[in-house]
Design a binder for these strands. Structure first.
Length: 685
DNA sequence: GTAGGGTTAG
């Protein structure tokens, strides 16, 4: 029996061979040699049941006094406690207690014993015990201090980590690459540019004999530090000048490109990478999904598998988010079933992304069902569910969900309030929204940001409370920016408040002259009140500045394929059938009271032509295609890049009444469920 | 026994 061949067994799956082998070793345990070997095998197996049996056998045989054996046992307890795969929720604290008991029973403890315990506490989120143990140690051991620094960083106690670093310096302790990367990570996360720069200077000053890859790991930490401190150029320069780069260096830069939304650079860089791992693929896939490249995200996910990489749960989450952007429900469901087969369905990020996927694909019930059956939930899950209900116009349910979240002792964060306020806005719940907005600072000590103010302005303006909205803007501690004026303009359009609307639009023209939405909203407002000259002025203004209206585009998933239609589409292979069907549908919808709302057409053309333009709006084409292709009883779920236009909104109501089918439209902002001639939005859009 | 690169909510 050789220890070297034991370590080759792959953890943590306990192969039958290893299992029986452990059994044999249990019999040999009476000799310290035999028990050390068995402990080594145990570490490889990471099996807590075997560990407990072994613990008992070791105590019985008196081998507990052999430090190396007890160290190995402690190590297994600690690892099993933190992996908690398929275990009961309380078993991790139980296993840590067992480790502690063993520690207390030991006659002699060495550095490894102490460090294993401290690292174990850190891994199991018990920093208080970790600090206690560290304080009890006679010697100041760098490894142990490093472990605690990393623990503080993981828990967001960045200043604690810095304090430990300073103490290490004061004690004259040896500082290694783990110490420096730990403290740099604290500076990165706390946004401490000056501190981090000082640490960098300190490293450069130190004349020590460093470990072979000392500067490689330190440089990797510095890359992220400089980038997040707003010094992307400096970070890039560092990357170029590094004498040695590894996967971590490449992944660090890739993820920073993605995080800062520089997706085209990220794509180029991804192709350039000399080596990739699952993590690189994951970063790229979710980066694409987050930046609206759902189709490319999904393609990359498949390519990843083709190239022989096994997607992890995070990669699946990225692919699922691609589906939600696309509205590819069938595809998302396929991924869901793959996940279950692979055993990833317990993963929080996967569960959370599935909630969003079902909701954003229009099936809010499925999202709710998933939420209710998930084995664990975090604030992200609650936020996702509240957002889902709000987007579907279920404002009251969203509020109820938020109250339940509080009862469950989940602390709401800034995003929770954004979702709650949006939910109130989509349903016109002014008083409730005001109460939650006030509670942010009063009950949770959170200062509302500009985005929170914008939601409030949206809520107030949609409800026609313009003087309240103005008062709120005046009371803001920050200068109102784009989100505030956008909310105001949208509210003014709903209520035809020209004066205020023009003011808001002017602010927006100053802040963002290149954005098409402002021109469109303002000219629509002029059109509604018949101010044709002013409308023409806005249009000229737009032309002079070279601003192009983003074309309306809608799409639908049929037979696992996404079919997209542009306004006045001529490219789709089945477009003729679509127009024919719309021709048939026309008189029926008019019989139900449809009158084309030609005021909404921007071009200076006659009424017939305007009706023609309206009748080819992308959302109408897409609904017609869905009605032609989907089975008779299936709901029609369509997606649109822009907000649905008022004429299409009326049309959809009547079509849903005529064909007796549910039509669900996701526009740029929210969902509309049309049934029997009515829409779930109740006019609040 | 410790580090540097990831995910999900708006």
């Amino acid at each position: 029996m050789h220890a070297s061949c034991l370590i080759k067994f792959p953890p943590p799956i306990l192969s039958p061979g290893l299992h029986s082998f452990l059994g044999i070793l249990m019999l040999e345990i009476s000799s310290p040699q035999g028990s050390t070997l068995a402990a080594v095998a145990l570490i490889a197996a990471e099996d807590h049941n075997m560990c407990q049996q072994m613990h008992a056998a070791v105590v019985k045989s008196g081998a507990a006094n052999v430090t190396s054996v007890s160290n190995a046992l402690i190590s297994v307890y600690v690892k099993c406690a933190s992996s908690s795969l398929g275990m009961m929720p309380h078993s991790s604290s139980f296993l840590m207690c067992e480790a502690r008991k063993l520690f207390d029973e030991m006659g002699e403890r060495d550095e490894l014993t102490w460090t294993t315990m401290i690292a174990g506490f850190v891994r199991n989120d018990d920093l208080i015990s970790a600090q206690e143990f560290l304080d009890q140690m006679d010697d100041s051991l760098t490894v142990a201090w490093n472990a605690l620094i990393s623990g503080y960083v993981q828990h967001g106690s960045f200043y604690k980590a810095l304090e430990m670093f300073r103490n290490m310096q004061a004690l004259g302790m040896e500082l290694d690459e783990f110490t420096y990367t730990g403290v740099l990570s604290a500076c990165t996360n706390a946004g401490l540019l000056r501190h981090g720069t000082q640490v960098h200077a300190h490293i450069l000053r130190t004349k020590m004999k460093p470990a072979p890859d000392f500067m490689l790991s330190v440089n990797n930490a510095l890359l992220t530090f400089y980038w997040r401190a707003g010094k992307a150029d400096q970070a890039q320069h560092l990357f170029e000048s590094m004498p040695k780069r590894d996967l971590v260096s490449w992944n660090a830069v890739l993820s920073e490109y993605v995080k800062s939304g520089r997706i085209n650079e990220a794509k180029k860089y991804f192709l350039m990478m000399p080596q990739k791992c699952v993590l690189s693929w994951t970063v790229m896939i979710s980066g694409l999904a987050q930046n609206g490249y759902g189709e490319e995200g999904l393609k990359l996910f498949h390519q990843m598998k083709v190239e022989g990489y096994e997607p992890c749960d995070y990669a699946f989450a990225g692919a699922i988010i691609s589906c939600s952007a696309l509205g590819a429900l069938k595809h998302g469901q396929q991924l869901h079933s793959q996940l279950v087969r692979l055993g990833f369905d317990g993963s929080l990020s996967v569960g959370n992304s599935l909630i969003t996927m079902y909701a954003r694909c229009g099936v809010v019930e499925a999202a709710k069902c998933l939420f209710l059956t998930m084995s664990s939930l975090d604030s992200v899950s609650w936020n996702a569910m509240i957002a889902a209900l709000g987007q579907h116009g279920k404002g009251t349910d969203a509020i109820e969900m938020y109250e339940e979240m509080l009862r469950e002792q989940i602390v709401p964060d800034r995003i929770t309030f954004l979702t709650v306020l949006s939910a109130c806005s989509h349903k016109g719940l002014v008083d409730e929204g005001q109460r939650y907005f006030d509670s942010m600072s009063a009950s949770f000590g959170m200062i509302p940001g500009e985005d929170h103010y914008a939601r409030m302005i949206d809520l107030l303006c949609r409800a026609g409370k313009f003087s309240e909205a103005n008062r709120l803007i005046e009371s803001m501690p920050i200068k109102p920016g784009i989100p505030i004026w956008e909310a105001m303009l949208a509210g003014c359009r709903v209520h035809g408040n020209m004066d205020l609307g023009i003011q808001a639009a002017e602010r927006l023209f100053e802040l963002r002259p290149e954005h098409d939405g402002t021109y469109i909203l303002l000219s629509n407002m002029y059109a509604t009140v018949g101010r044709w000259d002013d409308m023409a002025k806005v249009r000229n203004f737009m032309r002079e500045r070279g601003v192009k209206k983003e074309p309306g585009c809608s799409w639908i998933e049929v037979d696992h394929m996404v079919h997209a239609f542009l306004v006045g589409d001529t490219k789709h292979p089945e477009i003729t059938a679509v127009y024919e069907y719309l021709q048939e549908l026309g008189p029926e919808i008019i019989k139900l009271g449809y009158v084309p709302d030609t005021q909404l057409v921007l071009h200076k053309i006659d009424t017939d032509q305007k009706e023609q333009v309206l009748s080819t709006h992308s959302e109408k084409l897409t609904v017609a295609f869905g009605l032609l292709k989907l089975p008779p009883s299936a709901p029609i779920r369509i997606f649109k890049n822009l907000r649905i236009c008022g004429d299409c909104h009326k049309w959809m109501k009547l079509v849903s009444q005529f064909v007796k089918r549910e039509i669900i439209v996701r526009d740029g902002r929210r969902f509309h469920h049309f049934t029997d001639g009515a829409c779930s939005c109740g006019g609040y859009w």
